[in-house]
Amino acid sequence: MLLKKRSNFGERHGVSYLNGEVKFQGVSLNVYSYLIDGVLIDTGSRSLHKYFESFIDEADFDQVMLTHFHEDHTGCAAYIEKTKKLPIYLNEKTIEYCTQRADYPLYRQLFWGRRKPFHAKSMPETFTSRSATWDVIDTPGHAHDHKAFLNRDTGQLFTGDLLVSERTKVILAEESIPTIIHSLERVLTYDFEDVFCSHKGFVEDGRLALERKLANLLSVQLNVLALQNVGDSAEVIRNKLFPQKYPITKFSGGEWDSIHIVTSIMKE
């Protein structure tokens, strides 16, 4: 199989980053790792280890903060545990899972590689870096252990996979739109300026982007519930609200699909 891989390194507003990308059969996926004030936020994927490990080798940091357990964010955590022997922090809900052999579908292994087991410490509610204090914000929905990190001193917010796209079209089967709505509402109560997304990178007017995503999801929720109230099935609602088909749906065997947006709302 022909996978195309590349990366780019940069710096924005005092935050260094590495962005790695994998392309296969018209599907392109990317992920960021960020470095600021001695903190490494997420570690990239195992499939892109030659890029992320080089970034890690050259980086000066004291601790690792993981937004959530997904393999594109934790893929090089084992490498850090082996070579740096620095504390790695993760939501306690998934610490045990990450000590075990990774178990996820083959297409995700193709894109992101096979995450090696690693050991993490329980994520605190706040933490300090070399010159700042940080808030750790519960933001579940995309993943049940998802966290966002806010540097109180700089007003920089690292949102993991909370934003990604302002207009959500497909989600993972285990995601919950109502829970994501609550997470967006929660994070918007904080005072922040810069937004760094794990897939979009630095987001211009980040607060507005998060507000637009929230407004869009609230609108989708209202539309789904209205159609449910007149007796439409989840499949009919999906076809009305999300008629376009996306390559990732077929490629993932339906793990990524618009239908999950609808069913997560109908379940609430």
Rank of each mutant, 00 (worst) to 15 (best):
L86C: 09
G254S: 06
R101M: 13
F52N: 07
T139A: 09
V22T: 13
G254N: 07
L106W: 00
K250F: 04
A77M: 11
C98H: 13
K213D: 02
L90K: 04
D60A: 13
F111N: 07
F158M: 09
V22S: 05
Y34E: 06
I137H: 05
F158L: 11
L163P: 05
T99G: 09
E174N: 06
A59Y: 12
L225P: 01
E125A: 08
E268N: 15
D138G: 00
L86R: 15
A234F: 02
L163F: 14
T154L: 10
P247G: 13
T74L: 04
N216S: 09
K250A: 14
S28M: 10
D257I: 02
H260M: 01
K23I: 04
Y51S: 08
S176I: 10
S129R: 04
L172W: 09
L225W: 01
D145S: 07
K50T: 10
V22H: 04
H13V: 00
F55R: 03
K4Y: 11
D153I: 02
Y190V: 11
R114Y: 09
S198M: 14
V136I: 14
I171C: 09
F242Q: 03
D191P: 12
F202W: 13
L48E: 08
E58A: 10
W134R: 06
G253I: 05
L172K: 06
K245L: 09
D232C: 14
V203N: 12
D57V: 00
L210M: 13
L172N: 02
S176M: 06
Y17D: 04
E193C: 07
E71W: 15
P243H: 01
S45Y: 06
I36T: 11
V220P: 03
V236N: 05
N19C: 15
I36D: 04
N223H: 10
H146K: 05
T133W: 02
I265L: 14
G206K: 11
N239V: 00
S122L: 00
L225S: 02
P117Q: 06
F202S: 02
D42V: 08
H199F: 08
Y89F: 15
I88L: 10
F158T: 05
I261A: 08
K267C: 03
K169I: 00
L18H: 01
P247T: 03
G141S: 07
K147A: 06
P87D: 09
S131R: 13
Y32D: 03
G44K: 12
L214I: 06
E204V: 08
N223Y: 01
I261E: 03
G14M: 05
G75S: 05
F192V: 07
I177Q: 03
L208E: 15
K50R: 14
L29H: 07
E21F: 03
E204H: 15
M266Y: 12
D135I: 00
H68W: 13
I56P: 03
I80D: 10
V230N: 03
K169Y: 04
F202Y: 15
E166F: 04
L188P: 08
A173C: 00
G155Y: 09
V195Y: 06
F61Q: 10
C98I: 01
L35W: 03
A59C: 08
A215D: 08
L225V: 03
F158Y: 12
I36W: 04
V220E: 01
E53I: 00
F9P: 04
P247Y: 03
G75F: 13
K85A: 12
L227N: 11
G44W: 14
E185D: 14
V31Y: 12
E235S: 07
N229D: 13
D232Y: 10
L241P: 04
